[in-house]
Design a protein around this nucleic acid. Structure first.
Lengths: 188, 188, 188, 188
DNA sequence: TATGAATGAGCATTCATTCAT
DNA sequence: CATGAATGAATGCTCATTCAT
């Protein structure tokens, strides 16, 4: 319970104040425990932030995993649409947190945060491509997965994180169409 | 001269030590002036970082501007290829600085750094699309520019910043082909 | 048993990590009990350290007591030699602990640690002098005991604690000769 | 001036509160400057304490150096008396500080504080012995210097630091006689 | 009796910023 | 204009001690 409260408090303070202002004393106070307790469960501020990243990543990946499981047997266009939808849904879990995590966290050691967040997606999507390779042109699957995942991630991330207020639901629908078209025609 | 030295020193320290370790005293020392002088020319550390962003953006944008000027009269496929090449070239100007700027700088206030870096690109590319709209399907030009610019930026950024060491020159050539195909077929 | 384990753990951690790093939690862990139990038997960290000093002093004093009992009936030169040997033996019981105790422990209140360690020796040696006063010149016995005990303690302490590695067994034998001569001729 | 004030404040706080309670903030406050200034002149608390040790050692050694220069041409007994007097005078410079420095400072790295404080004395006294070796029996000069310096240091240290209040001036005179006798007869 | 989670004051250190010279 | 000593709030983290179970 204390651990959860600390992770949650860290996430909220990261969002509200940014990484630099997220002091361990403030986090502990917000979590309703003392600094001492914080350090009983996390050896350093970095470990706490890592736990936040981990928790957020797991939530994100669950959405992506579910989507790719659903997509496994669908033809390519529908599969891509499912994935694009999932990407948007994932970014909407906690867009502000996602943004802070993506932009503001000093690297905590290899591998890159970005890769941590997208590495599994890449692998899962590549697996889909392998299973469906007869539906599209011959291409290096690793490269294709990189192009598709990077593009979908960038489009949905930018749309959700930077333009959510200015984009209507219809606009999002259109964006989904366009992103799907981008990927499908690329693969054909 | 002092101003230039300060901006350059800030950029180098940002790259070498990261944002958190880039203290104004260290920057001043590296620039060969006193902290006092630093504050004579820049009202705050943030202003200094903003100046670095500004200078880097200008260098980046000059590459992009030149490329789009070159591309203005080219047919779409060649134009897109020129733009993709320019994006890679731009990211290679100072990839480490670009990365620090993109990832590690606490937001300095609206508008987003990302937008600062890509906002003009978006406008320039949209202008190209307007001038060449008969070469491709009917589509919302703003949306199309967003999709294209965001995708190209993400692919080239990720490739240059995160995978430069592991990618051969030929691999970059293939990536350019793929990125070009992605955009061209999307627009067709 | 718990008390012994705690004292032993404290001694070992004092030696290994020094006073500053010897936290009560670490001591309790090393002793295989909880901090709570530590505070059930010792009211404070200071009390624990005092117990370590006490135990070490008792071990030391046993050696000294035995030596002076042996020396009681010996003529002066042999008696002094026995005492010097005992002093070296005593310092060799746990030289590292002795050093930490002597140098690094913040005073825990009157009486001085040094006096705790040497006070009884002083009294015992004075008693020997009283019993053998006809063997040497007339002198204030308290003063003579102070001079002898302080010198023997300093010589053996410095030799064992600071120069053990660099001193061969023969060198120690010579040192014993010299220390004995120092005291014997002083008393004559 | 700031540097001197800091060293002096450190010395006074070391004496008053002991090493553990000598916080850098308290030291700075006592010195009448801010912590920031403290760290402008000393890279760490340890460096500050080292400076205190250094200053105190220099004061001590000046007394000892002067005494041994005076003693150089004197016959042994007078020379030893001069040295014993100097040892007492040296310990009286700042007995409380000497005690804290000798007993309470966590080792700051090789060489031992004790050796730092007494190493030069040892060398100087050995030089005296070399120059006067025909006045006493044949003996290993290094060993003799060790025995003499260690004994004198221990006797004067213990007397001044631990028994100053309880010892009258006459008692000190007697102690000087005894210490001189101890050394002189040892060397004869 | 034993436990160990919780406490929170305290510490060493950093750094953006000011201002007298 | 330039200097750089001075400031002091703020930070990450430790540890002796308590107390509900």
């Amino acid at each position: 319970m204390t651990v959860d409260a600390l992770i949650e408090a860290t996430a909220r303070i990261l969002v509200r104040d940014g990484f630099d202002k997220a002091s361990t004393n403030r986090i502990a106070e917000k979590a309703g425990v003392s600094v001492g307790s914080l350090y009983q469960y996390f050896p350093s501020k970095e470990a706490l932030v890592t736990a936040v990243i981990e928790r957020h990543s797991q939530e994100l990946m669950q959405v992506v995993r579910d989507a790719l499981a659903d997509a496994a047997t669908l033809p390519m266009e529908q599969a891509v649409r499912v994935l694009v939808n999932a990407a948007i849904e994932a970014h909407r879990i906690d867009p502000e947190l996602h943004r802070v995590l993506a932009e503001q966290i000093p690297r905590t050691g290899r591998p890159e945060n970005t890769e941590v967040l997208s590495g599994e997606t890449y692998a899962l999507f590549r697996a889909y491509l392998e299973a469906h390779c007869e539906e599209f042109r011959a291409v290096d699957l690793g490269l294709a997965a990189f192009v598709c995942v990077t593009s979908i991630e960038a489009l949905t991330h930018t749309a959700v994180v930077h333009h959510s207020e200015s984009l209507s639901n219809e606009a999002f629908e259109v964006l989904i169409d366009e992103a799907t078209r981008l990927i499908v025609r690329y693969l054909q």
